[in-house]
């Protein structure tokens, strides 16, 4: 492998670089074609599986939920029930129990982790004004370190009763949810991090903090619109 050809005369150099260029461009085109073909072939199925996984995750983040309804947040700030997500508007899921009672909303959030974007889903209960569940939808965090955000019990315990209380006039969050170091949690709105997964766990705290700051006041103000009409059951 180490025998490199040395190019001496200009004419051979010319043909050789032309050859190199054609080879690289040719292989590039073949590879691009292959990728595009596979991407196109698998796109629909991947989207379908992702949507299914998202719907399944709703049941994980909202305890006691047995059915859900997708809502889309329009540009006017109003949530409307939809059956399929259209465009890029944010989507939330309202969860209902067996008797059709509205229990809470599952909200998707995403943000920069250590390796790549982390996508999460968390459950918000307007009744108790707390975050009641958390699930990682997609993450490429370092195995064994960053991926502890999905596994460590004391970290997941943050999201059983995390305070997202609004101010007296319900216009904004009273105390924005913030990440703190492991063992330093002293307030109900703090997310206790993981030693050894500092950046990843801090990212989760920030994602939820930013997402709740915009979504929770909107959801709380329209909480009546998530409730099922009696005839809708």
């Amino acid at each position: 492998m180490s025998q490199q050809q040395t190019i001496s005369t200009p004419s051979t150099a010319d043909t050789s670089s032309k050859k190199m260029l054609t080879a690289m461009v040719g292989i590039g085109v073949i590879c691009a074609l292959l990728i595009v073909l596979v991407y196109d072939g698998t796109k629909e199925r991947i989207e379908q599986l992702r949507a299914e996984a998202l719907e399944k995750a709703v049941f994980r983040v909202l305890p006691g939920v047995s059915s859900s309804q997708m809502f889309e947040l329009g540009a006017d700030g109003v949530f409307k029930p939809v059956n399929k997500p259209e465009g890029k508007n944010p989507i939330v899921f309202a969860g209902y129990n067996d008797t059709g009672e509205f229990l809470g909303v599952a909200i998707e959030g995403s943000g920069q982790g250590y390796a790549d974007i982390i996508r999460i889903l968390y459950g918000y209960s307007p009744e108790t004004q707390t975050i009641v569940g958390f699930y990682v939808l997609e993450s490429k965090e370092t195995p064994g370190l960053g991926d502890k955000i999905e596994k460590v019990d004391h970290f997941l315990a943050n999201f059983t009763e995390l305070s997202a209380k609004l101010t007296a006039d319900f216009s904004k969050i009273e105390n924005q949810i913030i990440p703190v170091k492991q063992g330093a949690k002293s307030n109900p709105w703090e997310v206790e991090g993981i030693t050894g997964a500092t950046i990843s766990s801090r990212a989760i705290g920030n994602i939820i903090g930013e997402s709740t700051a915009t979504m929770v006041p909107l959801i709380f103000a329209q909480k009546e619109s998530f409730k099922k009409n009696p005839d809708q059951k």
Binding site: Q4, Q5, S16, M20, A23, L34, I35
Partner: peptide, 22 residues
């Protein structure tokens, strides 16, 4: 027979990366 010696490693990596994406 189509890949010149000078760019073979780059070409191989391109091919490998394609299949990894697939």
């Amino acid at each position: 027979n189509f890949i010149p010696k000078e760019v073979r490693i780059a070409s191989f990596i391109l091919v490998i990366a394609t299949f990894v994406t697939i």
